[in-house]
Design a protein around this nucleic acid. Structure first.
Length: 262
DNA sequence: CCGGATGTTCACCT
DNA sequence: GAGGTGAACATCCG
């Protein structure tokens, strides 16, 4: 589920709990705690603190707990299938799996915040939580990316454009669907060498990253892009009708239109 | 049974 | 060391 847009929705849901006290933390899936080998006692030590702030950098959700000496931060990553449910109802009630069933078996972490139950539900278990995660590993957030940020991010890089845009340490927040949508709207091929965009292309791309995130946020998620339905073999480009191409770029399945993306 | 999935990380190569 | 690539991770779905 989650790219930057979804994580921002999760952030919004948890923000309503600012000021509440963290009563306890349950860890039904101990392997969800990072780094590997971290003890659950570090988690238990968070109990008793008040939720001071909720932040997001890229796809990383940050809960600031406690004040002064005791201040700590809990980081949440959602992997491919993680989401947040507050008191059992998610901010995005999109059924990922069609078969009705009890999904609570996928609750990997549960936070009790002033009486609210906040569950991280993640079937595939690729997400994680970490006490005081290293925020410096992330590049600037894509939602507010300026053209200078982008120029700096791309400068000198030889990887394909798509790979660079998805690299969270260079730019934080873009995932597979968002990047394909942004490049489609920008008219840029995902195979372009990152460092070879001219100034005009950089401006166009930076604007498109911001406006695409804004628009798809209004529409309700990363899956609401103009290209989402064209992500299948045999699909044609919604803009010009050319056959969409399917390639493996940056390690991910990529759909793009070789006719208008250059 | 098989391929693929909105992500991150680690080993390995240049 | 930095940058880049591809496999691995764990689980479910069509």
């Amino acid at each position: 589920m989650p790219e930057l847009i979804e994580v921002e929705f999760y952030a919004g849901a948890v923000r309503s709990l600012i000021g509440q006290r963290l009563e306890s933390v349950e860890l039904p899936d101990p392997a969800y705690l990072r780094p590997p080998g971290a003890s659950a006692e570090g988690l238990d030590a968070l109990a008793g603190a008040e939720l001071e702030a909720v932040r997001r950098i890229g796809k990383l959700l940050l809960l600031d707990l406690g004040r002064g000496e005791d201040a700590t931060t809990l980081g949440l990553r959602f992997g491919m299938t993680g989401r947040i449910l507050v008191d059992g109802s998610g901010p995005i009630e999109q059924l990922v799996y069609s078969t009705p069933r009890d999904e609570s078996q996928w609750d990997r972490v549960v936070l009790f915040l002033g009486g609210a139950r906040v569950a991280i539900r993640d079937p595939r278990r690729l997400g994680s939580i970490e006490v005081v995660p290293d925020e410096s590993m992330l590049g600037p957030d894509a939602a507010s990316l300026g053209v200078e940020d982008l120029a700096g991010a791309l400068s000198g890089r030889t990887a394909p454009l798509k790979a660079t845009l998805m690299n969270q340490s260079i730019i934080a927040g873009l995932g597979n669907l968002l990047v394909d949508e942004v490049l489609y709207r920008s008219g840029l091929a995902p195979t372009r060498i990152s460092g070879q965009l001219d100034r005009e292309e950089q401006r166009r791309l930076a604007r498109s990253i911001r406006s695409t995130i804004r628009q798809l946020t209004d529409r309700g998620g990363s899956h609401t892009g103009d290209t989402f339905d064209a992500r299948e073999p045999g699909a044609t480009c919604p803009r010009d009708g050319a056959p969409m191409r399917r390639d493996r770029i940056g390690g991910r399945t990529t759909y793009w239109c070789p006719s208008h993306q250059r």
